[in-house]
Amino acid sequence: MAFERKRKKGSPGISTASLPDIVFMLLFFFMVATVMREVELKVEVNAGDLPEATEIKKLEKKSLVSYIYVGKPKPAFRTMYGSEPRIQLNSAFADVNDIREYIIAERELRDEAEIPFMTTSLKVHEGTKMGIITDIKQELRKASALKINYSAQERTSEL
């Protein structure tokens, strides 16, 4: 009964020698796919706070995009900055008048040839009043940063 004796031995253990390879593969995938958030958000513009639209396009060439965040300060900053919508440039609160300097500083970080392709992305909480946005747009016009992108998410419900 050679057949029965063999069964009693139990199943041989699976070799784990290839486990590091599998893990490394996953690791490389996530390393490549990762985009780390460079700035800490101090205003409330989470993904769900952006307006919804249908005619949206992907923002290409992330290295050429400068961001302007507008929204109410997060609760931790309310005592200092109030609860009215504020502008955030890089990682600090800013005033409308700082935008031109910010754009100039952003330009200096890039090649001269790339400047015409630079885009400013406005990430604005949908409840913000247009007054502050119009001021920002006027400042951008003065700085001749004319390519803008109103950050929006895919519309999920009917109008």
Binding site: L27, V35, I56, K57, R141, N149, Q153
Partner: peptide
């Protein structure tokens, strides 16, 4: 390392309406 990158990954792509402002 894998767990670190898993946690820090944000896969969302930036989308929005592109417009061009008129020159001043």
């Amino acid at each position: 390392l894998l767990i670190f990158f898993l946690v820090t990954t944000t896969m969302d792509v930036d989308t929005g309406i592109s417009r061009k402002l008129p020159a001043m």
